[in-house]
Design a protein around this nucleic acid. Structure first.
Lengths: 197, 197
DNA sequence: TAATAATAAATGAACCATTCATTCAATAAA
DNA sequence: TTTATTGAATGAATGGTTCATTTATTATTA
């Protein structure tokens, strides 16, 4: 077989795999592991029932794979927050907007689902245990403290404030994913009022 | 049978019924209709698998019953908001605190679940259709507008602001119910910053 | 180039292990 | 005896997974 054709085939294979992964991510994030049927993923991806099994071993494998990717992405988003340009408030706004964009939203919700459901594949369970949400918040605290020093943020326990803020954002995503598709990105400034004075 | 004994028996019957209902409410609110197994309700109530069926016809019956009660309660909470004492802000704070207390929280989440799940018993579905969330917000708008007139609340579209606020509160409850049991009541003032200026 | 063979991709109906609401025979309490 | 309670057994339904078959793509041959 000519190596050109082989490379093309491989690319096609990877593309389809991504297509299925993307569809699965959306459905898993919205409905959770148990709430997601393989038929839903197939429908979302516009393919037939059985085809996913040419690309993945099982439903659990897809889920675990996505959870690992999601954790990786969350990690990166939090890691980068300090190096975003602008004031602490602007950093936090940028971070929040990034969380709320379609892709990250789904990742974020997926982890949420994985954390709060039972029957999660052990591989995903382990990945989640490795990833501690405490770290997430702790990495954000310096931003918040700097905001306080510069007088932009409200006084008080930074840790609790951040938990509140993150919970609100997560909660909103959860809401939004289930119910109507309102565009919260416009409301981020109102949300930031939770942290500012 | 002496009427004393009969009355006692009836009371015992009702008490057990309430016990099961309360357990069911908690689990349904947390896990949703499909996510709730009858065995979970039994465990929460501290009774055996089968006993619920002496007090209720079916899982669906319990669910529908609870949804109707929940709607009734939500209605009342919203109806009363205008007649609470104090400034608009204080009214809203009192209202929010009421929503966040254990009982109302579970009711609120139950309706949320019923609205966003499939396979909801028709009786519950109909009750929910009768109860429009639009009304909820519309009944709250006067409070908000008065707050704006008195300069306490931020300018802007009252409707959107209220949706945001209610979504945040609902989202928080959803979060809280699943994950850790942080006491949000202390954070309500931060939340109200979403609405104030 | 056209015809044919070989390979791979895709389908969707059927299978079957599992799950779970419901029942019921047995036991305890009143 | 009657009523309350238990928890093991039932059986229907769900849904992940398989696989015989069809369709599309690529390679080979004349």
């Amino acid at each position: 077989m000519p190596r050109i054709a082989r490379a093309q085939a491989e690319q096609a294979f990877d593309e389809r795999k991504d297509q299925i992964k993307k569809a699965a991510l959306k459905i898993f994030a919205e409905k959770g592991l148990a709430g997601t049927k393989m038929s839903m993923i197939a429908e979302e991806a516009g393919i037939s029932q059985g085809l996913s099994y040419r690309y993945f071993q099982s439903k659990d494998e897809i889920f675990a794979l996505l959870v690992e990717e999601a954790i990786e992405e969350s990690r990166n988003a939090v890691r980068d927050i300090g190096s975003l340009p602008g004031s602490p408030l602007e950093q936090l706004r940028a971070f929040t907007l990034r969380l709320l964009d379609e892709n990250h939203k789904h990742y974020f919700l997926l982890v949420q689902q994985a954390q709060t459901s039972e029957g999660v594949p052990s591989q995903a369970r382990e990945a989640i245990q490795r990833y501690s949400p405490q770290d997430t918040i702790e990495q954000m605290i310096p931003i918040f403290v700097r905001g306080q020093q510069e007088g932009q943020f409200a006084e008080g326990d930074a840790y609790k404030r951040l938990i509140l803020f993150l919970s609100v954002v997560t909660g909103l995503m959860l809401q939004d994913a289930k119910a109507m598709g309102m565009d919260w990105t416009q409301e981020v400034d109102s949300l930031l009022n939770i942290l500012t004075k």
